[in-house]
Amino acid sequence: MRSRRTGLAVVLARRSAQGLGVAVLVSLLCFLVVRRLPGDAAYRIAAGRYGYDLVDQEAADAVRDELGLDRPAWQQLGSWLADALQLDFGRSLVTSRPVLDEVGYYLVGTLQLAAASLALAILLGGAVGVLAARRPGGVLDRIATGWVAGVRAVPPFLLGLLLVVVFSAQLGLLPAVGHGSASSIVLPALTLGVSLSGLIARVTRDAVVEVGQSDYVRFAHTKGLAERWVLLRHVVRNAAVVLVPYLGVQAVILIEGVVVVESLFAWQGLGHALVHAVFWRDVPVLQATALALALLIVTINTLVDLAVLWLDPRPRRLEAPA
C-alpha cells in the first residue's frame, strides 16, 4: 500500500507542475499578444466596448493605457504572470464584466458538453470495440475498422454541418443552434461524441482482443471459472487498464473539439468565448478561457492517472501519455 501512496504523491506533484507550466506558457503567449497589439486592435477593442459610432482615438489610447504598455517589458511580464497566478484577470475589454465571472459561467456550459460527449463516445466506441473484438478479422471487425477510418477522416465541424443538415434543416427534429432547451445539447454532443468514438472503438477492440488472448484469461478459464465471471473479473478490468490512459490522450482532442463544436452550434461555453475573444482581441477573456481549457486537460489527465493507479497495482514509470 505504501507504493500506492507514493504513486499518488508522484501523480499529484507531476500534474501540479504540469498545470503550472501550462499556466506560465499560456500567460506568456497572451502577454506577447498584448505587446504586439497594433493600434487598430486597440481601436477595435474600444469599438467593441463603446460601439463603432462612438469610438475615437482617445478611447483607443485609453485602452492602450489600461493595458500598461508604457512600462518596461520585464516589469510588465512579472506583474502579468503574478496576476495570472493569483487568478486576477481583470475585466473583459468588451463587456467590462469581471473575467472570472464570465469564465465561471462559460465553464459550466463546457463541462456539460464535454461530459455528455465523452459519455456518448465511451458508450458508442466501447460497444463498437467490444463487438469488433468478438471475432478479430470477422465482418463486424471490418465494419468497425471502416467506421474508425471514416470518423477519423471527417473533421468535427463537417460532421456537425452534416448533422445540422439532416436533423435540423431536413427533418426539423432538433434545434440547430442555441443553449436554451434541453434538446439543444443533442446535436453538439452527438457531433463531438461520434468524432471521439473512433479512437475509443479502436483502442477498446485492441485491448479486449489482447486481454482475451492473455495467459491469465486462459488460465481463468481452465481454473473452471464461468465465462461471464472471466469477462467481469479479468477482461473488463485489464482492458480498462489499457483504455483509461487513452482517455487522457483524448482529453486534448476533446477540448479541441469543444472549441469547434461550440462555435458551430453557438453553445455558450469556453470555446465559444475564446473564439470571440480572439476575434475582438479581448485579451483578459482570451487568457482566462485559454487557461481554463488547458487546465481542464490537466485536470482530466490527473483523474485518468488516479484511475490507473486505482486499477493497476503494478509500479510503473509514470510516463503516461499526455
Binding site: 495467459d215 486462459r218 481452465t222 473452471g224 471459472l225 473479473r233 478490468r237 485489464n238 493497476d312 503494478r314
Partner: peptide
C-alpha cells in the same frame, strides 16, 4: 471438467496470474 476433473498448470505462471487482482 475444467478445475474439477481436469486441471492445467500453465507455462510461465507469472503471466498466468492477473496482474490487477
Amino acid at each position: 471438467l475444467w478445475g474439477r476433473e481436469l486441471a492445467l498448470l500453465p507455462q510461465e505462471p507469472s503471466l498466468a496470474l492477473d496482474p490487477t487482482m
